[in-house]
Design a protein around this nucleic acid. Structure first.
Lengths: 223, 223
DNA sequence: GTCTATAGACTGATAGAC
DNA sequence: GTCTATCAGTCTATAGAC
C-alpha cells in the first residue's frame, strides 16, 4: 500500500468516525482499524492525534473560505468594486450555512465533521480558528466599502453578530428545532440565510450609535 | 474533615482547575491533589468525573436561570403582566453576559468556568443544556405577550438569534477583540447587552415575513 | 466518610526491527 | 513506510482497613 493511500485512508476513516461519534469517543485505534492500517502510521504521517484533526479541519475550512471569497468577489465585481451590504454578508454566512444545514448535510461526512467541529470545540480546532482573523478582515474591508462612513466598531459588531447567528444556528439547530416544535424550518437553507442576512444588515443600516439612539436605549434599560 | 468540606473542596478545586486549564487537560488526580483529598472521594461523592462536571455546571446554571426569571418577572410586573420586548430580551441575555463578560469575570473562577463550558462543550454539559428548553419556553411565552399577533416562528427565531449573539460573544470574545483591535469594547458589559437587545428587538419588530419583504429579500439574493 | 491499595482496561505516543 | 512491542499515563471501579 503506497504512502498516499495509507494517508488518505486514515483521513477518510477519521473524518467519518469523528462525524458519526464525535471527537471524544473516537480513539486512534478505532481509526486505524477502520482504515485498515497500522497504529504507528498515524504518528508517522501526522505526528499526533491533534495534528490529524487539524489537517481535517484545515482542509475543510479552506474550501469554505474559498467559496466565501469567490462569492464576495463576484458580488463586488457586479457592483463595480462595491457590493450592497446584504451581498457581502451573504457571501460571509452563505457557504457555512449551506455546508452545514439542510437535508443533504446529513449524508456528507465532511458536513457532519464540520458540525461536530462547531459543537465540540477542542484545542487543535480552536487554535486554527484563531488564525482565520486575516480572512475575516477581508470581509470587514468589503463591509466598509458597502457602508462608507460607518464607524469601524459598528462594522466589527455587525460582522460578529452575523457570524454569531450563522454559527449558533449550526451549533444549536437541535435546540431551536425542539423549542419551536417544527415552526422554524432549518431545511430551508436559503430561508435561514435570508434571515441571518436580513437581521445583520438591518442592524448595520440602523444608526445605533447616535446620541438619540443611545439615550433611547438607556431609557429602555430603566424600564 | 467532615463530609461537606471534602465535597466542597473537590468542587472548588475542580472549578478552579477547569477554569484555568480547560476540561481536556485536567485529570481527577489533579483535582484531588489540589483539593487535598483522596482520589476515591470523587467517586464516593459524585459517582463519576462527568457527574462532578455536571454538578458544577448545574449549580452555576441555576443561578443564571434564576436571575433571568427574576428580571423577567420584575419587568412584567412593572408593566402589568406585559413587558416591552426589549425588557424580555434583556432579562434573557443580561445575566449570561454580565456573568461572563467584563473585567471582573477574569477573577472569578465561576465565570471562567462558565466561559470554558461555553467554549469546550463536552458531553455531560451538552446533555444538561438540552434540558433547558423548558426554561427558554417561559421567555418565548413572555415574548408572545410582548408582541401579540407575531407568528410563533418569528418569536423563536428572535429568541434564538438573541441567544446566539450573546453566547457567541462570550465564546468568541477573543476573536472579536483581535479582529477589531480594541474598537469593540467588551468590558462595557451594559453596552454589549444594549447592542444585543437592540439588534434582536429590531429584528423582531420589523416585519420580515410579509410578501413585500420576502420579495425584497429574494431580489437582494439575485444581486 | 475517608482512606490505601489495587485491579483491569484503555489511551496517545514511540523505539527499533524490518 | 510499515510493523511489533511497549511505555507511561489515564480512566472507572472496588475491596477492605479505619
Amino acid at each position: 500500500m503506497s504512502t498516499d493511500t495509507t494517508r488518505s485512508a486514515i483521513l477518510t476513516a477519521a473524518e467519518r468516525l469523528y462525524a458519526e461519534r464525535g471527537f471524544g469517543d473516537v480513539t486512534l485505534r478505532d481509526i486505524v482499524a477502520t482504515a485498515g492500517v497500522n497504529l504507528a502510521a498515524v504518528n508517522y504521517h501526522f505526528g499526533s492525534k491533534d495534528e490529524l484533526i487539524a489537517e481535517l479541519f484545515v482542509t475543510r475550512s479552506i474550501v469554505t473560505n474559498r467559496q466565501r471569497l469567490n462569492e464576495l468577489k463576484a458580488a463586488e465585481s457586479a457592483g463595480g468594486g462595491r457590493a450592497p451590504i446584504e451581498a457581502v454578508l451573504r457571501a460571509l454566512v452563505g457557504p457555512t450555512l449551506r455546508g452545514c444545514l439542510g437535508p443533504d448535510s446529513q449524508r456528507s461526512d465532511a458536513a457532519r465533521f464540520m458540525i461536530r467541529a462547531a459543537i465540540e470545540t477542542i484545542p487543535p480546532i480552536r487554535k486554527i480558528k484563531n488564525r482565520e482573523i486575516d480572512h475575516l478582515r477581508k470581509f470587514a474591508a468589503a463591509m466598509r466599502r458597502s457602508l462608507p462612513g460607518k464607524p469601524d466598531a459598528e462594522i466589527y459588531w455587525g460582522l460578529h453578530f452575523a457570524l454569531a447567528m450563522a454559527q449558533q444556528t449550526v451549533r444549536d439547530s437541535e435546540r431551536l428545532l425542539r423549542l419551536s416544535e417544527g415552526a422554524c424550518d432549518l431545511d430551508d437553507v436559503d430561508g435561514v440565510i435570508d434571515r441571518v442576512v436580513a437581521v445583520a444588515s438591518l442592524a448595520l443600516k440602523t444608526n445605533m450609535t447616535g446620541e438619540a439612539e443611545a439615550a433611547e436605549r438607556a431609557e429602555a434599560r430603566k424600564r
